[in-house]
Simulated scan of single mutants.
Amino acid sequence: MKSNLWIEGLSDAIGFVGGALLGFWIGRLLGLDIFAPGYGNASIGGIVLVGLGGGAGLQLARRWRSRATGNNNPKE
């Protein structure tokens, strides 16, 4: 039981951080900088891409984990 929680937490973290980094670098390629001063369109667009990337990475990690364990319900 304890190792299952460890695997769940670790895979969620890796998926989220990996997706957020992917969103960050896609934003950089499109000229969107989340660290730009102020809250201009480029800064907000970059923040949105990081958030979407993190959420997508988390969902992919959960789907991968549910397939690896043979569980069809990723919410469990």
Rank of each mutant, 00 (worst) to 15 (best):
Y39N: 15
S66Y: 09
N71A: 09
G18I: 02
S66T: 12
P74Y: 09
A20Y: 00
G51Y: 05
R62N: 10
A68D: 03
K75Q: 14
I34S: 13
G19V: 04
A42S: 15
T69F: 15
L52V: 12
N41Q: 08
L49N: 01
G31D: 08
P74E: 14
M1Q: 15
L10P: 00
S66F: 03
F24D: 02
I47Q: 13
L60C: 08
V17Y: 01
S11H: 06
L32H: 15
L10R: 10
F24Q: 05
V17W: 01
G45V: 02
G18D: 00
F35L: 07
G40L: 10
W25F: 15
L32I: 04
L30G: 04
A13K: 05
S66M: 09
E76F: 07
L60E: 01
R28P: 00
D12V: 08
G27P: 05
Q59F: 10
T69A: 11
V48H: 05
Q59W: 13
R62A: 04
G57L: 12
K2V: 01
V48W: 09
L49W: 05
G57K: 06
A36Q: 09
R28I: 07
G19Q: 08
G38D: 01
A42D: 15
L49S: 03
S66N: 12
N41H: 14
P37A: 09
A68R: 15
P74T: 08
R63Y: 11
N71K: 10
I44H: 09
S3N: 06
R67C: 05
G23I: 02
G15A: 07
V50C: 15
F35A: 14
L5M: 12
W25S: 04
L10A: 07
A36R: 12
I44D: 01
A13M: 12
G31F: 03
R62V: 01
I26K: 04
S3F: 08
S11Y: 01
S3C: 06
E8M: 10
N4W: 02
L10W: 10
F16N: 00
L32V: 03
G38R: 12
P37H: 12
L10E: 09
N4M: 13
A68H: 12
G27N: 05
L49E: 02
D12L: 10
G70D: 11
N73C: 04
I34C: 13
R67G: 04
V17S: 04
L49G: 00
W64Y: 15
A61E: 03
L5W: 08
S43E: 14
A13G: 02
L10F: 14
S43I: 00
I14K: 12
K2I: 02
I7P: 10
N71T: 08
G57T: 06
S66V: 02
I47C: 14
I7H: 15
L49Q: 07
G51A: 11
V48N: 11
K75T: 14
D12W: 04
A20C: 09
L52Q: 03
G45W: 03
L21S: 02
Q59G: 00
Q59R: 13
G55F: 08
G55W: 10
A42R: 12
G70M: 06
R62I: 04
K75N: 13
I26W: 06
S11A: 06
L29H: 06
L32A: 11
G54K: 01
G40V: 03
